[in-house]
């Protein structure tokens, strides 16, 4: 089984090397999609490629996380991945969760595994406002998008899927709304899916980078999903 990780990265020169080193312990290869970074993200990622297991692709201009994830997923499929893992580049995901994330896909019991911050494992440093915003996002997903109520985390960036599932999952959104699109596609396409508890670590650094105004992000996500509904 060939397991390829896909990491979209934008201005992550300080964090990407550590994420790659930790994740490579559990993945065969990693595709980093540098989404038009203005810093040395590409160089930092290539610097960790000691065994030829890291491939860095670069978007000429910044197209946002969803677009970078789509590029990386296509690259992974083109290279013959059996299992694809999506990870964030900012170090929020704990690489130690990867074996649990991969196991149900490896043993063939499910097609997609989603990491969730709301299944008993306390996220480290998650602001209360964000917790409530995510809860609201979950209800938005349920009521507006028809996503299953069983999904507990509406914006998780940690997921593993078979190559066949990755081909079936269609998402067009370039921005953060891609997470909701993926959830909708997964839960309404007949794919077998499950959530596992995921430990997420918020540091001041990652919170600063993500920006403080998450409410405007939520409004943007809802707006993009609405406009996306009318776009071919």
């Amino acid at each position: 089984m060939r397991v390829i990780g896909v990491i979209p990265a934008y201005n992550e020169e300080k964090r990407i090397a550590a994420v790659l080193r930790e994740s490579l312990a559990y993945l065969n290869e990693i595709i980093v999609v540098d989404d038009g970074s203005t810093d040395e993200t590409s160089r930092a990622a290539m610097g960790t490629d000691e065994c030829g297991r890291v491939c860095v692709l670069r978007h000429a201009i910044n197209r946002n996380q969803g677009a970078a994830l789509r590029t990386g997923t296509k690259a992974a499929l083109m290279s013959g991945a059996d299992i694809i893992v999506h990870l964030d580049a900012d170090g929020q995901h704990d690489a130690k969760d990867l074996p649990n994330l991969l196991q149900p896909v490896l043993d063939g019991s499910t097609d997609v595994v989603l990491g969730s911050r709301f299944l008993g494992v306390q996220a480290t440093g998650m602001p209360l406002a964000r917790r409530w915003l995510l809860k609201c996002g979950r209800w938005f997903n349920i009521l507006a998008l028809g996503i299953s109520r069983q999904v507990t985390d509406p914006q998780s960036g940690l997921r593993a899927m078979t190559a066949e599932a990755a081909r079936q999952i269609v998402f067009h959104q370039d921005g953060k709304a891609h997470a909701s699109e993926i959830l909708r596609s997964v839960t309404r396409s007949g794919l077998r899916w499950m959530e596992i508890p995921a430990h997420v670590i918020y540091t001041q650094d990652s919170l600063n980078k993500a920006g403080s105004n998450r409410t405007s992000d939520a409004i943007k996500i809802a707006w993009h999903l609405l406009v996306g509904t009318f776009t071919k």
Partner: peptide
Amino acid sequence: LTKIVEQNALAVLSFPRSSSDDVG
């Protein structure tokens, strides 16, 4: 625009298939 950027990024890849590796 995203499609063009994506194609541009993927164009620099070559894909010689390798034998299967052990996960982890």
